[in-house]
Design a binder for these strands. Structure first.
Lengths: 362, 362
DNA sequence: CTGAAAGCGCTAACAT
DNA sequence: ATGTTAGCGCTTTCAG
């Protein structure tokens, strides 16, 4: 038994294939209402489903999109990007081919070729985390970069605004009254986010008139363990130099800070406030107390990328390299700093008092 | 500028399209070596990429597969299934359409229709977690179910062997010398895995001649919090009835057990041994000490599903509903039970001594 | 060893 | 208001 085709429907309805095509595609109502009905019934009766393949060949539009990524599909990390991209694609009536290259350049090359051969209407090149990378050869012109940017430019892209995100995190802490705020950074120099968040940290300190203490910028391996080690160093500082709050490069490292704090009998947020980054559900929401963190707008970025790739969103010229806001997710790991027990410091107190709300409020 | 087609290559090489097609598809070397070379060079020169769409129309084979899932792509959970499926697809020269329905039946229905319209060569229906579900209407005959099974049968499927997995977890504990082993179960009655793992638990207890204590089977919400609460109840038991080891429904809940243990000053595994399930990297590997757990063979299941869907793996008849082994991942949360301090119990001791290794060893 | 030609299933001029 | 027909770009008989 072979699949019914349009001519079968035409025969069953006693009309031409043109008519069938016209009614099934809702083209110009130049077809009479009752032929229309007859055709629809005939199509139903024979169980007809138009072939997207034939249609694609004829129209030169496949209504498919290729999404190439290094690891996003196979990693517990950025699945929400996929969800956003998918939703946008579905809304536009497109199907998505997903290829995870695992970071293998050869596979990536093949993927681009295969996707081109499939005549996808658009292509998205996604990364697991915010980075700047060499655009692979052979990418079609309209390709949009998701969570990464091409080193040489030439493609549209969307990435999180990590600078603003870092600033928002630290501002959260400054608002709560903290003055000794550490940045527990990753020692990995690859992620561009590390530096950007640091810039955000520095800018808010400046806004709030808080002097920078280099001892409060520590780094560690990007893991709970690394976070814990780095936190130990911070908490080993003499009491007047010890931070009352720690902004962590990510939630995993923040998890390590919890461990370090618990081991010293420090209660969060009473004795120490913590802000993470990434809003990884499995970590952030399940800490005790739940971790206040900055969310990466994965879903929105995925959606944006797909929408501009498909042309349903007309992005402005200046928007070719889009930055997306990272909202802070308030949970319970931030509180006011512990009351100063010893050596109250006039200088510190006065600064806190005249903290310009306006300056830290946007 | 339009894409070059096969006739352009033919013209450039001074041969017919037949010849071009033949050499580009490596068909029967009835083509002379030098025409072959000329054609290849011409193809290269004009930048020719065969259209999979046209080829698909002609051959009625698209070399594409549809993968419909509820949530696997957008959840931090089972991405490895995708990786396995992808790798198998790539090995077979197929591209995969991925559709996440978010559990929405209407979207699922549209997805099946869209994929059929695309004339995919095969289809996989995947679930985020092991369950038995009603097969949606319209699924093509050869569809294979991944991490789930159709209630009525009729489709091939692959799921983890949760019964054996539960048994392996508990055996791990029995081997370490434990006799008072709790099963910290989920209170959610949906997951079929819960009951299967319980069966495994019971069977190993029986094997080892350990009497079942109903007080040692507790349930909680499927989260760190739920795990913690349930663990509290277990640890509140009078000393002689308290478990020395806890097998948890999953790693998240096991994380809660760590918290409960720490709060009481219990050290793992010195005072309490723990085994989880799922091997979620973000949780299991980052616990302190790292959690011994049972891994779900996501990658292998994804691979298996794709291979049978594509027919590269000839599964036996009896294998239509395949069960895949869940390996235990040994880390550092299991140790011998704490030395009995009070009321040494002759019965208990004698049992431990004559524990039949053979019985618990397979 | 190579080429001509039919046809995969559809859409869209162009007729009528 | 509806039908005829020419392709979309390829593979594959069937002839030479």
């Amino acid at each position: 038994m072979t699949r019914p085709r349009i001519s079968d429907v035409a025969a069953a309805a006693g009309v031409s294939v043109t008519t069938v095509s016209l009614v099934l595609n809702n083209v110009e109502s130049r077809i009479s209402a009752d032929t229309r009905l007859r055709v629809q019934e005939a199509a139903q009766a024979v169980g007809y489903t138009p072939s997207s393949v034939a249609r694609g060949l004829r129209t030169q539009q496949t209504r498919t999109v290729g999404l190439i990524s290094d690891h996003i599909a196979t990693t517990p990390f950025a699945g929400r990007m996929l969800a956003g991209a998918q939703d946008a694609a579905r809304a536009a009536g497109h199907l998505v081919f997903l290829i995870d290259t695992g970071g293998d350049k050869r596979i990536e090359h093949e993927a681009i070729a295969a996707l081109s051969a499939q005549r996808v209407d658009a292509m998205i090149y996604a990364s697991m985390w915010h980075q700047i990378l060499e655009a692979p050869a052979g990418l079609p012109a309209g390709t949009v970069f998701l969570d990464c940017r091409p080193a040489g430019g030439g493609f549209r892209s969307v990435v999180p605004d990590d600078r603003a995100g870092g600033a928002a995190a630290v501002r959260e802490l400054v608002r709560a009254g903290h003055r000794r705020i550490a940045y527990l950074d990753t020692s990995d120099t690859t992620p561009i986010a590390s530096g950007l968040r640091h810039e955000g940290y520095l800018s808010v300190l400046a806004e709030a008139g808080i002097p920078v203490d280099p001892a409060l910028h520590v780094t560690g391996e990007t893991s709970a363990h690394g976070g814990r080690d780095a936190a130990e160093r911070l908490l080993d500082l003499p009491e007047d130099r010890r931070p009352t709050a720690i902004f962590c490069f990510n939630d995993r490292m923040a998890g390590g800070v919890y461990t370090a704090a618990h081991h010293r009998g420090l209660e969060i947020p009473r004795d120490l406030s913590i802000v993470g980054y990434d809003d990884q559900q499995l970590i952030a929401a399940e800490q005790d107390p739940p971790l206040t963190t900055v969310a990466l707008p994965h879903y929105e970025m995925g959606r944006w990328a797909m929408e501009v790739a498909l042309g349903v969103r007309a992005e402005g010229e200046e928007d070719a390299a889009h930055q997306m806001e990272c909202p802070v997710i308030r949970r319970d790991s931030v509180g006011p700093p512990p009351a100063q027990v010893a050596k109250p410091n006039r200088r510190r107190a006065s600064h806190t008092d005249r903290l310009p709300e306006a300056a830290i409020d946007r």
